[in-house]
Every structure is written in C-alpha cells, then in structure tokens.
C-alpha cells in the first residue's frame, strides 16, 4: 500500500505533475544542492523539452495557501471503484479535520498496472510521477512549499489567478547547468 500523508502534500505534488517547468526547476535545485546526482539533470531536460510539456501543462489557480484545487470530484473517480481510500487522521471527536491521508489500495495498484499496459498514452503520467517522486524524495511539505514560494511568478500571483509558468527562465538555467556539468 502506498500513502500520501496530508492533503497539502498531495496538492504540492499535483502542482509539480501539472507544471513541468516548476518540476524541472526543482530537479535543478536538487542537483545543485547535491540531493540528486548530476545525471538527473537529464531528467530536467526530458521534463522541460522532450516530453511535450506544452501538451501536459495544466496550470493551477492560486489559493490562500498557494496552488490549490478541490480534490473531491477528481478523487471520487478513484474512490468509488475502490482504487484509493482517504483516511482522516486524528480523533473521531475532532471538530476540524487535522489531516487527510490518501492510500492507494491494492485494486488501485492493479488497475494502474493495467492502464499502464493497455493505454500507452497514459504511461506519460506514470513516468512524470516517477520524476516528481525522485525529485521530492525525502522532502517535507514545508520544504516543497518554500521552494514554490521561492518563485516570484508563484508568490506574486494574486489569489484566484492562474499561476504563470517559468519555462524560459528554467530553460536558460538548465542550459547553463548542462553546459557546466558537461551534459549538454
């Protein structure tokens, strides 16, 4: 069973999957900080230029605490066939929900494997999620949040507006990093 703890983390990860430019930038950061090996720069290159990011960019709205979209409808699709389970952490007496954890059920894993096998087009997401997972390995929600707010485009977007992309900037940064590491 796989689990993603806390809705906020899910939101952050969703943002990275839907915004390849921010993902590439995160990979660059991770490489620069030494959390990832130099070779992972090629992942950033793949994410930013090779994997048709234009077709797979789904910008998100800026909410009170950053990028946020209600998950219910989307997750309902996974929930009602019993692919995932959403568990509320804390006591049953809590007035407010402290935390929601998102579990991938066995049926979900099987279904994902089937999807992966039968519809290659959708395998793109499989791979993209793998990049996100590699890049965010060991990062806390707070760290992810801090990174995202580090971008002027992200932090500066007014509430309720689409968060703008940073493709050009990341492209330049990536070219420079590749050049520096001899991977260009």
């Amino acid at each position: 069973m796989r689990v993603i703890q806390a809705e906020r983390k899910l939101q952050k990860l969703d943002f990275l999957v839907r915004n390849p430019d921010y993902l590439a930038d995160l990979i660059l950061d991770a490489c620069a900080a030494g959390r990832l090996q130099k070779e992972r720069l090629l992942d950033a290159k793949a994410v930013l230029s090779e994997r048709e990011p234009d077709l797979h960019t789904y910008r998100m709205l800026r909410n009170k605490h950053g990028a946020y979209e209600p998950l219910n409808n989307a997750l309902a699709v996974l929930r009602h066939p019993g692919l995932i389970q959403i568990v509320r952490a804390g006591l049953s007496s809590d007035v407010q929900v402290r935390r929601r954890d998102y579990y991938l059920l066995e049926a979900g894993q099987e279904f994902a494997a089937k999807l992966r096998a039968e519809i290659p087009v959708l395998a793109w997401y499989d791979q993209q999620v793998l990049y996100v997972r590699t890049a965010t390995e060991g990062m806390s929600t707070e760290e992810l949040k801090a990174l995202q707010y580090g971008h002027a485009e992200y932090a500066g977007t007014p509430k309720g507006q689409m968060i703008a992309g940073i493709s050009e900037r990341v492209r330049a940064r990536l070219a420079e990093a590749l050049e520096r590491e001899g991977l260009g």
């Binding site: 797979h56 009602h80 066939p81 019993g82 519809i119 087009v121 959708l122």
Partner: peptide, 26 residues
C-alpha cells in the same frame, strides 16, 4: 493540441474507468 490531447486522454481514461464497478460512495 493540448486540448485535443487532453480530450483523447480523457476519452481513453473514461472508457477504461467505465468498466469498473462502483464499490463505495465517494
């Protein structure tokens, strides 16, 4: 192109998901 792509993905996923039986109320 993005829209077309999205539509295709959605169509494919929709078809696939349709085969599943509801187990719980979401």
């Amino acid at each position: 192109a993005a829209a077309v792509h999205t539509a295709e993905e959605a169509a494919l996923a929709h078809a696939f998901f349709h085969t599943l039986m509801p187990t719980v109320c979401p």
